[in-house]
């Protein structure tokens, strides 16, 4: 009976692992080696493609941009969504429900629909070609979902905890920092991981905001030529771009699995 499960699962795992193998394998070939033998295992491995990608194709700089922007956006997202979730779940103020519904509704607007007004706004604010502008853009686009998740998560915590802190003399900000932020850890972890992936992998928004400089995903996209593509170089770029995310996954594997479970139950 276990074959029924094992075989499809093995195929599924293979379908995930093979592209990684293909990328790394070809990144180690030169262009000629690739053309002569696309699918075979590399004969004469060389790191020249990585050196070229890092230097000549500027992926080193782009990686730095990506790290800054992703880190900035994720930190900003977690702080603001936790604050908003705290307010929406625990505090009573006029139009709370309406506000929450508006935030929920904004979840349904695809990014593409607002690209033009978004671009004009960024222009007007002088945020085009700044990393800060991209951080703000990511925060704006991904915030509704984060607020929704944090509100749902905090709604399940006992309100008495907040009341106890009020009796203890804590201000709202102190309650948020000392109680809600640490209590929100499982949900914040989930959001941290999800948003890191979104920001890191984004091409569209990044392409619009950062036009002179680039993030790594845009840089990789630019490695594809109109007529010819240096596939081993592209593979090396992809491997470089994927490396931080894979490292992140290896470090936080347990928390990622826990975090997804939290999202599944509480989302």
């Amino acid at each position: 009976m276990h074959w029924v499960v094992a075989v499809p699962m093995a195929l599924l795992a293979l379908s995930c692992v093979y592209p990684v193998f293909f990328t790394v394998n070809n990144a180690l070939k030169d262009n000629k080696g690739y053309i002569l033998n696309r699918f075979g295992i590399v004969q004469d491995p060389s790191v020249q493609n990585f050196v070229d990608a890092w230097g000549r194709a500027h992926l080193g700089e782009y990686l730095f941009n990506s790290v800054t922007v992703t880190l900035g956006a994720v930190v900003l997202l977690l702080l603001t969504s936790s604050l908003a979730g705290f307010a929406l779940a625990m505090l009573r103020f006029p139009f709370r429900r309406v506000l929450f519904i508006v935030i929920l509704a904004s979840l349904m607007i695809p990014v593409q629909v607002v690209l033009v007004p978004f671009y004009r706004t960024m222009m007007g604010l002088g945020l085009i070609n700044t990393r800060f502008g991209l951080i703000l853009a990511y925060t704006a686009f991904f915030l509704p979902f984060c607020v929704y998740l944090m509100t749902a998560f905090y709604s399940r915590l006992p309100r008495e905890m907040v009341e106890a802190a009020r009796m203890d003399g804590a201000t709202l900000l102190q309650i948020w920092w000392n109680i809600m932020l640490p209590m929100g850890r499982p949900a914040l972890l989930t959001l941290g991981i999800l948003n890191t992936l979104y920001c890191w992998n984004d091409v569209l928004i990044s392409l619009l905001v950062l036009q002179k400089e680039r993030t790594v995903m845009v840089g990789i996209a630019a490695l594809r030529g109109e007529y010819t593509t240096n596939v081993p170089l592209l593979c090396a770029g992809i491997a470089l771009a994927a490396a931080p995310i894979i490292l992140l996954y290896i470090f936080f594997q347990r928390q990622i699995v826990d975090g997804i479970a939290v999202g599944a139950v509480k989302g």
Partner: peptide, 25 residues
């Protein structure tokens, strides 16, 4: 000072931190 039905202890703090929270604030 109030004692709540659910106790409303802060789960991420130790007993000492729970008790001292008000004074720290």
């Amino acid at each position: 000072a109030m004692v709540f039905q659910s106790y409303a202890l802060y789960p991420h703090m130790t007993v000492a931190q729970n008790m001292s929270f008000g004074l720290r604030m």
